[in-house]
Design a protein around this nucleic acid. Structure first.
Lengths: 223, 223
DNA sequence: ACCTAGATGGAACGCCGTTCCATAGGCGTC
DNA sequence: GACGCCTATGGAACGGCGTTCCATCTAGGT
């Protein structure tokens, strides 16, 4: 890839960074992270990988851009409400984006300081300031919240990979719990005690419970 | 890979699952996740990939086993101290293991419900029970803590990949902060306000601060 | 001494990301 | 209108990956 000097739409149906990113998102949504190959992209855009590389540095940059495309739309809708609610809104926005496009969870956790990440961490940081957290405690509060969100993002993506669409989630979780029970080389009292919740819980509500727990840790006076 | 029926060391210098795992860990420590290939493993063990596949199902299973090998030794040293300290000890044990073998962070966050993960989540769960968390709050407390730890694990690994050994961390972080300042298509007030801490903070202490914050969120009466 | 099942190791397969390169397209210049 | 020239194209080629295949070897049991 070279640096483009002029925008120039010289040909009809010209290949462009935007068309490539749109196609990439379609492929990612349909076939997940591993489905996005330059060959698949070439087939969809009726071109070769060489032409794509003229517009895009490499696969990682393409994923950065695709991820940012989705995250930007989440972060740009103004955040209303008091800071704690604003934090919940942002966090849920990211969560919903990941649920809708599970490849985002994978990429967000893999590539540090990509554009999408900067958007998220800055947005949450500002809300933490506005929450009235003392300056010296802001960094701790922020990094805890970010790491929690990225942890959930990564686990959601990993689970999505392990149980591809169509799998019955509660059924395969039950099967896993049963496997423990049989393979009990060591007893797993805690996991057995929460097995029911593990199978039945709602991921989104669970995620929000974690955000609330962390908000309580940030400020003990919060609800 | 087939199921082995007898242990049988029929040849001297026999290939074995254990020798393979040990070699894999050496390669992973030296060259990271991407350095572990069946060709590299074959070269080190003076054999071919076919022989390795007879002992190991696939690359993922090998990583599961290698990860568990390290994590088991962390989790097996008995946990002393009152529950909140025990939780800190376990969390720091995992953190230190990841710092020492950065590939663990990558694999732990990628493969859900692998053996190593079960060890960690059960160990932390038991401590949460012993902390005296009411039964109905245990699942939230546990999942928040786990996701935070996995988030840190993933970010640590991602940073390690972005700045391979030998890179001056604070220098490249400073460079990144400078790049923001120049590229300020949008202002980043929060990131600028914490830029200094971002460059200077100690990862381990920061991780522990997050654990403590979450412990406070779990029980407001904790220190 | 032979048979057989457990083990072995290297070749082959089908992918992947990336690079290379011969060529096409359309604009500025004459 | 002809001619360059630089942008842009697409397909071939490269090196590497995980995995599978298979001909072969080895050591115990008979």
């Amino acid at each position: 890839m070279k640096i483009r000097s002029q925008p120039s739409t010289r040909r009809a149906e010209a290949l462009s960074r935007d068309r490539i990113v749109d196609a990439a998102i379609e492929i990612l949504d349909a076939d997940g992270d591993s489905g996005l190959t330059f060959r698949a992209l070439g087939a969809r855009l009726q071109t070769g990988s060489g032409a794509i590389y003229w517009h895009v540095a490499d696969r990682q940059a393409l994923l950065d851009t695709a991820t940012d495309h989705v995250i930007a739309s989440v972060m740009e809708k103004g955040v209303e409400g008091a800071p704690p609610d604003a934090i919940r809104t942002i966090a849920l926005g990211v969560f919903d984006a990941i649920e809708a496009h599970s490849w985002i969870g994978t990429h967000l956790t893999r590539a540090p300081w990509q554009i999408a990440m900067i958007r998220i961490v800055e947005g949450l940081g500002v809300q933490i300031q506005q929450l009235g957290v003392p300056a010296e405690a802001q960094f701790d509060a922020w990094s805890t919240l970010i790491n929690y969100i990225l942890g959930v993002a990564g686990q959601n993506a990993a689970n999505g990979r392990a149980l591809p669409p169509g799998t019955d989630r509660s059924q395969s979780l039950s099967a896993m719990v049963d496997r423990w029970a049989r393979n009990n080389s060591k007893p797993l009292p805690f996991l057995e005690s929460i097995a029911k919740q593990l199978v039945e819980h709602d991921d989104r509500a669970q995620f929000l419970a974690g955000v609330d727990l962390i908000l309580r840790g940030i400020d003990r006076n919060l609800p």
